[in-house]
Design a protein around this nucleic acid. Structure first.
Lengths: 329, 329
DNA sequence: CTGTTAGCGCGTTCAA
DNA sequence: TTGAACGCGCTAACAG
């Protein structure tokens, strides 16, 4: 492997001069700059980013921590988008990224995870799909040994930023559109897991809407499970005008239940995943730009790693109507 | 950040002694070993893996290159399983891994990609979803500058191993089971993309079966697209007894077509993705252990990085019958 | 504008 | 069995 030293010798300059050219420092004459570039080309020199990191003490790698839920495999699409957004942006900004699934961290204490991160020179962590019950991550967030960005969880402190759409408003918007289109009065709301961060926010959105439009609402927790939503719909949908679901997957479950019951009710979902198209019906849903959120998260983690304060970031959302043709064309 | 130097001072020994203890060298007295361990604990010392890599010149990171297709978003599940398998195993074996999407490499020449990999100290590459048309990757494979493991493509050379199930046999197996169950004679086979590596292998499996059971077969290319498969089924399914598809997604398209046509034909798929359950019907499909394949791929890349020769690895497959209840419970 | 020097944190001889 | 010394490839003062 050809090193900076050989380049320097070949170009007849000092090592540091080569380094300066490499890193675009000022105060280098056009003349020597070209000589160095020439030598680099001729020797096919490739800088060693590891050595550079060690020397500059600019470690600062970023861990992408993905908390995959067992039951919702079908929505891997969301995590894939998150990954794509983060990896693309990190590459663009020259940030080293380590992909980590929480399954790999199972059985480790907060301290062990900290040590692991540190040994990997990780100084920033982006968490996707954080659960309230994840004691270890909660502990890490409290200790503030790293810079954090938490996606879809409203945690903010000196070293932690939160990023997500406005779930309260989004749930309000999509339900309102669905309800007004069909002049509904009685709402069945199938919410997410009781301990989920976004669950409460979305319920608040629904309550605001119910008050505003003078509706009645029944709330049941479907735990983001298709089957649970299906059973809830089977039990309660008949007596209501519309079924609002806190996730696309639950909307699909509810829709299937309605088909089995042979009754029609408007249904709306939340996420905008491709899978929605496979049910063959059309539904309103909230579209989130997962790629963009994750891309933004990387920019934000960099800011915090550089000493910036944690803050809350709200991303825009939109309502889309998804149906079969949208998907397969 | 506490370094090895401080540990040495704290323990009253030399730096090299600490290093030896750390790396489990022999010829260290039990006495000093304990002293060092003690100091490590007290100072909460965390080894810096980057510096260790630089010093030992043991870089050897592994790139996971994921070639995501635009049209098949619904099967992100497969890539997620691949990722999980590779990441888990890499962590277990203490191999550094870099996750890369081919979209990040678009517009780069083979040489640029080589330089990029080298600057990242990447010496092994695992490729998922390789396309025959990917000139850059094909070039890299030819140049053999890195160790390679290619998943689902039959490429083997001195520095490249191939790993996959036996697609010929798997296609044969699942079709045979489906056909024998219903005593079919006329087969509609919806194959994958014409230039796909696995497409030919699976067609061979079908041909063998057709000969053996004295069937007639019509082959059409559905390009792994749900819509294309749907259209093919609409056009030809009526005149056949059974529809065999080279992917689950196409099986879903065919199944939906059959429902629209209001006729019944047994359908079988290939992949075993969760999504299969959402069509609400039961189908045979090939189940691949994506996690296990990827895990094995990491072991293999390590072997090749250590100088082993490329080889072909065949993983086992199985047939499963998937239906709604399997998925949501 | 350029070169010299001193590390970054660690692994690895080679003497002692 | 231990430790001093060197070097991995590079960056960052500082001096010239």
């Amino acid at each position: 492997m050809v090193s900076i030293k050989e380049v320097a010798r070949h170009a007849g300059v000092a090592i540091s001069t080569v380094s300066k050219v490499l890193n675009g420092y000022p105060n280098i004459s056009e003349d020597t700059r070209e000589k160095v570039q020439q030598a680099i080309k001729e020797l096919n020199y490739i800088p060693n980013s590891i050595a550079a990191a060690l020397s500059s003490k600019q470690f600062g790698r970023v861990a992408l921590v993905l908390n995959l839920e067992r039951q919702t495999q079908a929505i891997d699409q969301i995590f894939m988008q998150y990954l794509a957004g983060a990896l693309d942006t990190a590459r663009h900004r020259n940030i080293e990224v380590v992909t980590i699934f929480t399954t790999m961290l199972e059985g480790m204490s907060a301290e062990e995870v900290t040590r692991y991160f540190m040994s990997q020179s990780i100084s920033g962590v982006i968490i996707y799909g954080l659960s309230k019950e994840d004691k270890v991550m909660q502990q890490l967030l409290k200790e503030q040994n790293f810079a954090f960005v938490v996606v879809d969880a409203p945690i903010v402190n000196a070293r932690t930023s939160s990023i997500s759409i406005d779930h309260e408003q989004a749930q309000y918007d999509v339900a309102k559109k669905t309800i007004l289109d069909d002049k509904c009065k009685q709402v069945l709301y199938i919410a997410g897991r009781k301990d989920g961060y976004v669950t409460e926010q979305r319920i608040r959105g629904m309550k605001r809407l119910v008050e505003e439009l003078k509706l009645t609402m029944m709330v049941r927790h479907g735990d983001f499970s298709e089957l649970a939503a299906r059973n809830i719909a089977l039990e309660y949908a008949e007596d209501t005008d519309v079924v609002v679901c806190a996730s696309d997957l639950m909307a699909i479950g509810a829709m299937n239940a309605l088909i089995d019951m042979d009754i029609f009710r408007p249904v709306c979902g939340f996420d905008g995943i491709t899978l929605m198209g496979y049910v063959g019906k059309q539904m309103n849903t909230i579209r989130q730009d997962f790629y963009g959120i994750s891309s933004r998260a990387v920019e934000e983690i960099q800011r915090i790693m550089n000493g910036g304060d944690g803050q809350q970031i709200v991303m825009p959302h939109s309502i889309v109507k998804m149906y079969y043709q949208d998907i397969i064309c």
